[in-house]
Design a protein around this nucleic acid. Structure first.
Lengths: 220, 220
DNA sequence: TTTTATTTTTAGATTTGTCTAAATTTTATT
DNA sequence: AATAAAATTTAGACAAATCTAAAAATAAAA
C-alpha cells in the first residue's frame, strides 16, 4: 500500500497525537496540521477508506495496526534522514527537521534499507529520539542507556546500537567495547554531554548522542 | 523563484529536448512526458507566465536563460543524488534513475551545497554525465579527460575533479597525482575501463568513472 | 432539561494538473 | 491554390486537496 505525501503527513501527526491522548479529535489535529477542521474530516474519510483508521463520525479517531505501521515507516524515514543530515552532512541538529519533512516522503524501500546500513543502523536520531526498525519496532530505552545512569555507579557496556565506523573508531580510541567497565563522573546540562571514567584510564567526555547509543548493565 | 515538481519535470525535459533539436514541439514533449499534447499546452502557458519560456502559439518553444538555469539546477540535483546513491549507498548505476527522479525535487539549497561537498564536488555522475555547478556551469570534457586519450600517448595529469576521499585514496595507491605521467595501454569496451601505465610502475586498471575525473594534457 | 456553546460534518467552491473531444492553425500534397 | 493531413490549442470535465459558510451533532451551562 502506498500513500500520498498529504496522507503520510496526516498519518504521522495522528500517530504522535494518539500517543499522548489516546483518541484524537478533529480540532486538535487541524491545529497541528495548520489547516481547517473541514479539511481534516475530508482526510479522515480517505484514511478510513484505506482501512488505516478507527473512525466514527463525531466520535474521535485513532490509527489501527495498519495505520500505526504506516506511521512508523514515515517516522523511521524521517529520523534516518535527520541522522544522515547531521552525521554525514554536518548540519546543526536544529536545522534538519524541515528538510527531513521532505525527504521522508521519498518512496524507495531499497533506498531506506541502504541508507540505514550506510549510517550503521542507528537506534537514535540526533535529537535522541528512537528510530523504529524495518518492522516498526522501536528500540526501548530501558534506563540502561549510559545517558540515564546515576553518577559514580560502576557499569559494564552491554551493547552499542550505532554501528557506524566513526562511532566505533571513537569507542576504540577511548578503549570502550562490550564488557568495558565505566563510571559516569559528571553530566554537563548545557549539552547533556557526559564525563566518564573508563577502567583505570583518564576521564573523557562523550556527547549525549554517543551516550544514548551505549547500553550498559550493572557490574555483576 | 520556486517550482512545483510537475513544473520542474517539464523544464528538465524541455531542456534535454532543446539541446538536441533547438526548438521543441508539443507532440514530442508530450511523448517524452508520457502525457497528452493538451496537457503540454496547459503547462506551456504556466511556464511562459513564469517567464521561463520563449513560446508563441503554434510556433514551437524553448527555454530562455532563466528557464535554462532552472533546468540546470534540477539536472545538478539529479546527478548529485545519483552519485550519492552509487558511491555511498552502493546501488548499481542502472538502478538509481527513478530514485533520483524523486530526490531531485527536494528544495533545500543548503542540502545540495552540503551534499556536493560531502561527495567531493564530483564533476561527472555515475553515468559519466557532467554535473553542472551551483552557477549552472557544465564541466567541459575538452578531449582532455583520461577517458578520451589515444593509446600509447604520454600525458601529464593536470587536475582531478573529484575530491572524494575514496578517489584520492585510490589515486594515492596508484601513485597518481598532479604532474604524474601516464600512458593509456588498453580500453575495455565492456565497461570502458582503462589499462594505464604510471611512470615506470606496473600497469593498472581504472574504471571509466575514475578516468573521467582525471584530466590530462600533453607532456611538454 | 432546555438553552447555549463547542465541535464536527456537509455542501459547494477553488486550484493544480490532468484528461477527452472538438475546433483551429499550420504543413503537406495533389 | 485548394484540399487533405498533421499538429496544436480550446473548451469543458475530473480528481485531489484544500477552503468558506452553513448545518448538524455533541457537550456544557443555566
Amino acid at each position: 500500500m502506498s500513500f500520498t505525501t498529504s496522507e503520510e503527513n496526516y498519518i504521522k501527526r495522528i500517530f504522535h497525537l494518539q500517543q499522548e491522548t489516546g483518541l484524537v479529535n478533529t480540532n486538535s489535529l487541524a491545529a497541528e496540521m495548520q489547516t481547517r477542521p473541514a479539511s481534516v474530516t475530508d482526510m479522515l474519510k480517505k484514511l478510513k477508506g484505506k482501512k488505516l483508521l478507527q473512525y466514527e463520525k463525531y466520535k474521535g479517531f485513532k490509527l489501527n495496526e495498519a495505520g500505526k505501521k504506516a506511521a512508523l515507516d514515515v517516522v523511521r524515514k524521517h529520523r534516518l534522514w535527520e541522522y544522515f543530515l547531521v552525521e554525514k552532512l554536518h548540519f546543526d541538529w536544529d536545522k534538519v527537521h524541515p528538510i527531513a519533512e521532505e525527504l521522508e516522503h521519498i518512496s524507495s524501500e531499497e533506498l531506506i534499507h541502504r541508507l540505514d546500513h550506510f549510517l550503521g543502523n542507528p537506534a537514535f536520531d540526533p535529537h535522541g529520539d528512537p528510530i523504529p526498525d524495518k518492522n516498526g519496532k522501536i528500540p526501548v530505552i530501558k534506563q540502561l542507556s549510559l545517558s540515564d545512569i546515576a553518577f559514580k555507579k560502576n557499569v559494564t557496556v552491554s551493547s552499542v546500537s550505532n554501528q557506524a565506523a566513526q562511532m566505533l573508531d571513537m569507542l576504540k580510541h577511548y578503549h570502550i567495547s562490550i564488557g568495558t567497565q565505566l563510571m559516569v563522573l559528571k553530566k554537563f546540562e548545557f549539552d547533556r554531554s557526559l564525563e566518564i571514567k573508563v577502567s583505570k584510564q583518564n576521564a573523557c567526555i562523550l556527547s549525549e548522542q554517543v551516550a544514548k547509543n551505549i547500553f550498559v548493565h550493572d557490574v555483576q
